[in-house]
Write a protein that binds this DNA or RNA. Structure first.
Lengths: 242, 242
DNA sequence: CACACATGAACTGCATGCACTTTCTGTGAC
DNA sequence: GTCACAGAAAGTGCATGCAGTTCATGTGTG
């Protein structure tokens, strides 16, 4: 069981922190992650920070280029779309594995989760997005299948990253209802329906976010035009550290 | 300025070597991979070897336990079965992406590959297995989708590992025919057929290898019985290093 | 003869240091 | 004022050393 193997591993602590920061959009694509500052912040040496960055890179959340500062990954539109295709198939496997096999305790936990999502609906959008993502990861955990969990987790987190770039505001209303529907189908043991509901849900999420290619982006100069006005606000917040 | 040739990360050189060794069964599940010996063998420090092992661990090919020597992963039977389920869906995505979109050059390359498989049919089984696996990886590469490639590669390699443990002798005859059939369907642009052929092929591979749970393994003593005969050959080759 | 135990070898976990590369900044030429 | 460029500052790539853990071998005891 991979889940509880609390290695006390300090590298994975850093990984978790960064993953969560990405999930909550505290970190955005392109943000720099210098290994020494990272190490300093977490009270470990660069060696550990470096290891963590390597791990995150292998998950596709961070980009490593030789001799350059690591940055949060910037998925392209095509990658985002492909990611969702993969994710849909993976999560169909998840519900197939879980269908009719959830313990009462697990059902209870999932219901509690949707309640929390409900509660967060009017709160910060960031929390909604995190909870929505965690719902999918929790499901994958329940399968007890390590590889499936790993892939679902990775694609889910990366989807989140893509949404940072391409997503319009996340409308959580229907998402919560869809989560409930998934639970219903799972409890009912209706495999076909569960798989369809899940696939439909993810397709909806993708559509809401990635309906079409990012603005054609005709000419760089046109994009910059509005910013040419003297007192306009700065186009992008300045890059932060760590 | 350093020689440009060595841009190729030295860690990934080690990774490739180990992956290939696994593919060719030079390394079997459970084999030890001490980082210092690894480093020595490849002319690098433990730091690099360690990094490589971390990478391989994240791919599921190596198991890392704290304070213990890294070992080649030992997938359980259930994991192997689950792995194939995932792999089937992933490779369905691969053929869907490629269907009717292969360039003549790519078709040429795939045909050449099956020819090579044909040629290797009577040779070492190890080579057949490697070629068969590489066929699937080549297909995934042709999609140009990085995540899909990564997951297909990982599951393919791990399948190979599972086969080391559970597989009966690999009968490559039908596998080659099935590969050809996949190419045919892709060229014909028949998406449904291509996906079905690929899924069927992988299902066959899984069935041939994992038809049922590993021998019930009734009693350890029974298993050892044949080896109790004085002059019998050693039950398992002794563990090597590196 | 079997078995518990102690002792040293082997190995990992991690920090640190040095060499090299990239990035930033300030200075001088035009 | 602008551009080019040199030098400093910041950062990465990697090896190595030390401390702590695990593993293996041999020794003594019942």
């Amino acid at each position: 069981m991979t889940a509880k193997g609390e290695h006390g591993d300090r590298a994975s602590t850093i990984c978790r922190a960064i993953r969560r920061a990405i999930l909550e959009r505290a970190l955005s694509p392109g943000d720099k992650l210098p290994e020494d500052q990272l190490g300093e912040r977490f009270g470990v040496s660069r060696t550990i920070a470096r290891h963590a960055l390597g791990q995150l890179a292998s998950e596709g959340l961070v980009e490593l280029r030789r001799n350059r500062i690591a940055v949060v990954a910037t998925p392209s539109f095509e990658e985002a779309r492909d990611e969702f295709d993969i994710r849909i198939e993976l999560e169909r496997l998840v519900v197939r594995a879980l269908c009719g096999r959830l313990s009462p305790r697990q059902v209870e936990e999932l219901n509690a989760h949707t309640l929390e999502e409900e509660r967060a609906r009017d709160g910060s959008e960031v929390v909604s997005l995190r909870l929505a993502t965690e719902f999918h990861v929790r499901l994958a955990e329940m399968t007890g299948k390590p590889t499936l969990l790993r892939y679902v987790r990775e694609t889910a987190y990366r989807s989140c990253l893509s949404l940072s770039t391409f997503g319009r505001p996340h409308s959580s209303d229907c998402a919560i209802a869809e989560h409930r529907e998934v639970i219903d189908a799972l409890v009912a043991g209706d495999e076909k329906r569960a798989m369809n509901v899940m696939a439909g849900h993810l397709d909806q999420v993708a559509r809401r976010a990635l309906l079409q290619a990012p603005e054609p982006r005709g000419d760089l100069m046109d994009i910059l035009a509005p910013y040419a006005i003297p007192n306009a606000p700065s186009p992008r917040r300045t890059k932060r550290r760590t």
